[in-house]
């Protein structure tokens, strides 16, 4: 029982990271832009959030936790949105190949974060922002004390709950608002959206930048909450970014599915640690990485199932990955 609780308590924070990545990417993909730069953008967001919190803590006499949260959030949002802007400019205005641009952005984001990280680390293997970490990871005061329920449901930082709220808001946005309808039309059939008088370029830019900003929050959550406020030379963010991309496919582009899908991915990812205690299966250390691949296997199974069912609603936006040019003949 206790190991099951521990498993859930691992899986939910882990799921939260990729949930942010997946939700951001879902917004981007709904506009028809396939941004493979999610890992890089999560790096940008995570590093910008960490660096700003770190400098705030170390340069102010009495750092205020709330202020450090706000500073870190704003910096993470802005930095990752800028990453999205690079992608948007290259693919929308210059009509560069989306796959190549996205992959380049991944390399770029990782490079930028690690390059500037060197100055903060200053020779050490890691540095920390404890005050920001404490603020981000603060549990819900009373509820988290309520036994098993408190441990498994109420013992996470506020961003974990914000992710769930955001997923519900996104679901409402896509399905019940005009901007959401227009955005989906842009991703499905930009020529139609254009002919209906929708500003395709504007929607694509906004969706890409806002989507990237939300991806960045995933990176921020990883560094300042999940990773205990530590920026280190070795990072796991990239792997998480790819997992977020897989999650988008797993959810069939529906934000509500991202909630349970992300936690399921978390549970599967940590499967190797809990297999021995729960099911009595021992996993040799050589097999760990193989077991960690299960989320990807599940994604592939979902892909196969979806393509076999041929349900139009479960397909990616029809114009995903393609540039739009009105006068094309």
């Amino acid at each position: 029982m206790s190991s099951l609780i521990a498993w859930i308590m691992r899986a939910i924070p882990f799921g939260t990271i990729i949930m942010y990545g997946a939700m951001g990417e879902t917004i981007t993909e709904k506009s028809g832009n396939l941004n493979l730069g999610v890992p890089g953008i999560m790096y940008l967001g995570g590093f910008a959030g960490f660096a700003s919190a770190y400098f705030y803590e170390n340069n102010v006499a009495n750092p205020n936790p709330v202020l450090s949260v706000i500073i870190a959030l704003v910096c993470a949002l802005v930095a990752s949105a800028l990453g999205g802007l690079i992608y948007a400019f290259l693919t929308i205005s210059l009509r560069a190949n989306q796959n190549v641009t996205g992959l380049a952005l991944t390399t770029f984001g990782m490079g930028v974060a690690n390059f500037f990280g060197v100055f903060i680390l200053d020779g050490a293997t890691y540095s920390a922002a404890p005050i920001a970490n404490k603020a981000f990871a603060a549990k819900i005061p009373v509820l988290s004390q309520m036994g098993v329920l408190g441990q498994t449901v109420f013992s996470y930082g506020f961003l974990a709950y914000a992710a769930i709220v955001l997923a519900i808001v996104l679901h409402w946005f896509f399905n019940c608002t005009r901007a959401g309808l227009n955005l989906r039309a842009v991703g499905e059939n930009p020529a139609t959206a254009d002919a209906a008088g929708i500003n395709v370029t504007k929607y694509k830019y906004l969706a890409t930048c806002i989507g990237a900003a939300i991806c960045g929050v995933g990176g921020l959550y990883y560094v300042l909450d999940y990773n205990q406020g530590i920026w280190a030379t070795t990072g796991q963010i990239e792997a998480l970014g790819w997992l977020a991309l897989a999650l988008v496919i797993f959810t069939t582009w529906k934000p509500l599915n991202a909630i349970w899908g992300a936690y399921l991915f978390g549970i599967l990812y940590w499967l190797y640690q809990f297999l021995p205690s729960l099911l009595g299966i021992t996993v040799s250390s050589a097999m760990t990485d193989l077991v960690q691949m299960v989320p990807y296997v599940v994604t592939i199974l979902v892909l196969i199932a979806v393509s076999m069912r041929r349900k139009k609603e479960d397909q990616p936006p029809a114009h995903l990955g393609l540039a739009y040019f009105r006068e094309e003949r």
Partner: peptide
Amino acid sequence: KLVDVFTALENIALCM
């Protein structure tokens, strides 16, 4: 110029 996965109503709403 229609969005395939939309209903007729949603397609019309695009033209508001």
